[in-house]
Design a protein around this nucleic acid. Structure first.
Lengths: 248, 248
DNA sequence: CGTCTAATTGAACATCGTCAATACTTGTGG
DNA sequence: CCACAAGTATTGACGATGTTCAATTAGACG
């Protein structure tokens, strides 16, 4: 987790080329969902550009003034926040078409830090402009509200996980959640390449890295899944999802 | 019957059925924040009315079609959701001026159940109308976005708590959070009347009711606080907040 | 190919959960 | 207003789950 101290802040690199929501393969699950072609064109003009975020670099820091929200275009991110006791804890992982920075709206400053876990690209959406535009386009406003609400629901589900599940259940639920999100994006429906370390998984799930490691090993011994370094292949999804459903 | 607790009720208990945001004592922390008088008037007209929710009755059920969001006017609520293993887990507690139902926006159905923990009243705000009106009033839109974002941040803070804090720290953090929110609303800054059972606190904090009870007793033995049934008086807030800050 | 980080595994220990017995509150009807 | 019942809270003993510390191995990257 000494990641933040890594390379110094890179200059925000904005791509010169035009953003093209209308032809983006993510348009069906991203902000443009539900918009008419003419509206999408306006949305494109609003997007400030793309920003390249190399692996292990920071997209935004907790405490930084909030100005834009970001949509992951390619790559993978983690967000982390400083707990009251000073620990840096992972609060989420984000992949393509997921939003980053929504927490900054309420106080005008980001409350978490976003770091790319692999070379990534994000679309930069100036929040003030999004607000303006969504006052003109009902569909855009509704989609934005849905996405914010989805964030609330997603966090609620994590709460449910942290509140009552045991280690094994948390790890399985985590893997299956990743898988489901990847599946929606057209990736394999049985294997995941983990972009994060055991320590980061542990931090997210409220467990230690040792427990993550042990749990994965145990599930492998039982033939439930197969681990090769950071690639996890879920072999018996039905049984795995049943394990999650079982009461503690 | 007249159980005299420290905090004097700062809000009038008796009210007509017409909604009057402009004279409501909560207007500075509620939806109308930032609106011009004329705009507030329009907002009032939009609010569908008030709804009385007696103690232990349901405001909305998980799975119910989402149509309105609610603002707590008086009283106290809990929200709970069904975890994958079938357990009913408390996901939050809401007091005056806090919103209920935001999770329903993304999927068109409520994802949690809201129950009044004391006789309560809520303002009913049809979501479709709120969307319409907020397209006309920039300030209303912004305030609504802030409130949704606040919900995201609030849940993030709970994540931080569940992820790494030990039982004692969770209980203290919980009490101090309640206190802070009550303080903003003009209540006592040192004592809280717990509207929920130990079991509900435990469910929320990912602990058992026994652990809650033991922890409170221990803190009382140490002179940190004083418990009389459901009234908790925090005696040494400085030391308590330091306990939370301490690494596990 | 060597160094550094990440991951695995073991053993001892701490925290919290479970089960159980008891006491206290609160609400109800006599 | 009191007595009783149901729900809620406290407390103890014991055990399970997950943490901590430590040693070792495997991978990643220059």
């Amino acid at each position: 987790m000494a990641r933040h101290t890594a390379p110094p802040p890179p200059f925000p690199r904005l791509e010169p080329f035009k953003v093209a929501c209308s032809t983006c393969c993510l348009r069906h699950i991203c902000l443009p969902t539900g918009l008419a072609p003419a509206e999408i064109e306006q949305l494109e003009r609003m997007v400030h550009g793309r920003r390249v975020v190399p692996r292990n670099t920071v997209l935004f820091h907790a405490g930084e003034t909030f100005e834009s929200i970001y949509v992951v275009r390619t790559g993978f991110f983690k967000t982390s926040a400083i707990a009251e006791d000073g620990r840096d804890q992972v609060t989420g992982f984000q992949m393509a078409a997921e939003l980053l920075g929504l927490d900054g709206i309420c106080g005008g400053a980001h409350t978490c830090t976003a770091v790319a876990l692999e070379d990534s690209q994000v679309c930069v959406i100036p929040y003030a402009k999004l607000d303006d535009l969504s006052r003109d386009f009902e569909q855009l406003q509704q989609q934005f509200h849905r996405l914010m609400s989805r964030e609330i629901v997603r966090e609620q589900q994590v709460l449910l996980m942290l509140g009552a599940m045991r280690a094994e259940q948390r790890v399985i639920a985590f893997l299956m959640n990743l898988l489901k999100r990847l599946q929606v994006r057209g990736f394999s429906s049985s294997s995941v390449v983990l972009r994060m370390t055991r320590e980061e998984i542990g931090s997210y799930l409220g467990l230690t890295l040792e427990t993550i490691s042990r749990t994965l090993s145990k599930l492998q011994d039982e033939g439930m899944l197969e681990i090769r370094a950071r690639e996890v292949r879920l072999l018996k999804q039905r049984q795995l999802s049943q394990l999650v459903r079982q009461a503690a």
